[in-house]
């Protein structure tokens, strides 16, 4: 009892200035309400959020287009020289689009190719792994909450922590090589190999985020009416058939959400991969966001205009993916109505 009263007293002391401030605010706000009515109050409530939103989200979004049409190293738009579509032309200047080495901005095309490959492999792996895990967690198993927590755990870890954990495991004298050595397999220097470092970025990002998608799929599985399965069982339907004919069709909306969300996030891959491999060895794990970051900020010959142009191309890719999601969602709704 004593500790409880102390903690509540601490809480009261901490809350006191806040409550006092809120009371103090009441007077001028009452006056404002009297002057402008509830419409003015709506404006008052919206103002702080929309001001921050306008300055730090909308404004950058708009001037990004202007930025992408200027050149030079100057920071402020007014000091930059207008070059029209030159930055885009520079990005698109390619002898052969399938061969990045023939492009003027070869790194952009390498990053684009790596990202595309990453998206395809990571999203398919993610979907399959999350699907299997969700199906298993939906079974009648003991301690389901615990098992769900097991698979969800890495989702909250910071990408830097995830990157460092795996860099430590994949290093030459790391845990993975130790395990391989013990079972008699050949150890590798994983992160200095072009192929394995790519696989590592894929695997690590699946490891870090699969719990999130598993949860979405699990929520969908639990919403499927039980009597459908009971009916199937009474008819003696095989498990595989039940999955293809009942589970998968009814899970489709959640599955689409998972695929599209995973796609949108995979296109933006940066933090874990950057900490894990730094984009290397060479350019084998250089992804689009890292390209934008390095061209815009990190390299000696930084070119904000070019980075802005590249980010707009990436934005367009994301818009297309979002529109696909909206389209699929609507088709689903219609399909639902027809039933």
């Amino acid at each position: 009892m004593a500790t409880r009263s102390i903690s509540s007293r601490i809480g009261a002391v901490l809350a006191a200035p806040v409550i006092w401030l809120a009371r103090l605010l009441n007077l001028p706000l009452k006056w404002w309400q009297g002057m402008t009515g509830t419409g003015g109050m709506a404006a008052f409530f919206l103002a702080p959020n929309m001001a921050i939103f306008g300055i730090f989200v909308l404004l950058p979004l708009v001037i990004n287009f202007a930025y992408s049409m200027t050149s030079g190293q100057a920071l402020f738009l007014s000091d930059r020289s207008y070059v029209g579509g030159e930055q885009y032309a520079r990005l698109m200047d390619c002898g052969n689009y399938l061969d990045p080495t023939t492009c003027r901005e070869d790194l952009f095309w390498i990053a684009l190719r790596n990202t595309a490959l990453f998206v395809v492999v990571q999203v398919s792996m993610m979907t399959v792994v999350a699907m299997i895990t969700a199906l298993i967690l939906n079974r009648e198993i003991r301690g389901r909450g615990f098992w769900r927590a097991v698979f969800f755990f890495p989702v909250l870890l910071s990408p830097v922590v995830v990157g460092l954990i795996w860099r430590w495991i994949l290093q030459r004298e790391g845990l993975l090589n130790f395990i391989l050595y013990n079972v008699g397999l050949e150890p590798h220097v994983w992160l200095t190999d072009r192929f394995y470092s790519f696989v590592a970025t894929v695997g690590v990002s699946v490891w870090a985020h699969m719990g999130f998608y598993t949860l979405i799929l699990l929520a969908g599985l639990q919403a499927i009416p039980r009597d459908l399965y009971e009916a199937a069982e009474m008819d003696g339907t095989r498990a595989g058939r039940v999955f293809w004919r009942i589970t998968l069709p009814l899970l489709m909306p959640n599955l689409l959400v998972v695929i599209v969300l995973a796609l949108i996030r995979a296109v933006q891959i940066f933090d874990e991969a950057y900490v894990l491999t730094g984009g290397g060895p060479g350019t084998s794990t250089l992804y689009l966001t890292q390209y934008i970051y390095e061209v815009g900020f990190a390299s000696l010959l930084r070119n904000p205009g070019l980075a802005a142009a590249a980010s707009i191309i990436m934005g367009l890719i994301l818009v297309v993916l979002t529109l696909i999601q909206l389209g699929l969602g609507r088709r689903n709704e219609k399909a639902g109505e027809r039933k």
């Binding site: 939103f53 920071l75 994301l318």
Partner: peptide, 28 residues
């Protein structure tokens, strides 16, 4: 309109507005 604007920007990730956001933050 305000609500639509907010929902629309749910899909604007940081990496897309990195460069102009940097200059805005500098300007203020």
């Amino acid at each position: 309109g305000v609500m639509l604007l907010i929902v629309a920007t749910l899909m604007v990730p940081l990496s897309v507005i990195l460069v102009p956001l940097y200059s805005v933050v500098n300007a203020v």
